[in-house]
Simulated assay, not measured.
Amino acid sequence: MTTPRVGCAVDSEGRITFALAAGPGHELLLRLRPKKGQPEETLHVLDLDPVGEGRTQAVLGPDPVLAEGRWDVYLLDGSERTRLRPGPRDLRALIDGHLRERRGPLAVRVPYVTEDGYLAVRTWLRPAHAEVGRVDVSGGTLKITARLHGASLPDGAEVLLRPRQGEATVRSLRPLVAEDSRSFSFTVADETLDPGIWDLFVRPAPGAPMIRVARLLDDVADRKRVFVYPGATAGKIVVRPYYTVDNDLSLEVKQAG
Rank of each mutant, 00 (worst) to 15 (best):
M1R: 05
T2I: 14
C8G: 11
V10F: 01
D11Q: 05
S12K: 11
E13A: 13
G23S: 13
R31L: 15
R33D: 09
K35E: 15
K36I: 15
G37N: 15
E40I: 12
E41R: 13
E41F: 11
T42V: 15
L43D: 12
H44S: 11
D47Q: 13
L48T: 05
P50N: 09
G52N: 08
G52L: 06
L60W: 00
G61H: 05
R70A: 12
L75I: 02
L76T: 01
G78R: 02
G78N: 07
R83S: 02
R85K: 11
G87I: 11
P88S: 13
P88R: 11
R89C: 15
D90K: 10
D90W: 07
R92F: 14
I95E: 15
I95H: 14
D96Y: 13
G97W: 01
H98Y: 09
R102W: 12
P105I: 05
A107K: 08
A107G: 12
V108I: 15
R109W: 04
V110G: 05
P111R: 03
Y112C: 04
Y112H: 09
T114A: 00
V121Y: 01
R122M: 08
R122F: 05
R122S: 07
T123N: 03
L125E: 07
P127F: 06
A128G: 07
A130L: 03
E131V: 02
E131A: 08
V135W: 03
D136H: 11
D136G: 03
T141R: 15
T141M: 14
A151W: 00
P154N: 14
P154G: 15
P154E: 13
D155I: 08
V159T: 01
V159E: 01
V159F: 06
L161M: 02
L161N: 05
R162W: 13
G166P: 14
A168L: 10
V170F: 03
R171N: 00
S172A: 10
R174Y: 00
L176G: 12
S185R: 02
T187C: 11
T187P: 01
T192V: 13
L193R: 02
F201Y: 15
R203N: 07
A205Q: 07
P206S: 10
M210R: 13
V213L: 12
V213A: 05
R215P: 00
R215D: 04
L217R: 00
D218N: 08
A221G: 12
D222H: 13
R225M: 14
Y229G: 09
P230H: 09
G231E: 07
T233N: 10
G235Y: 03
G235F: 14
I237D: 10
R240M: 06
T244Q: 04
N247G: 12
L249Y: 02
L249D: 05
E252V: 04
Q255I: 09
Q255D: 09
A256Y: 04
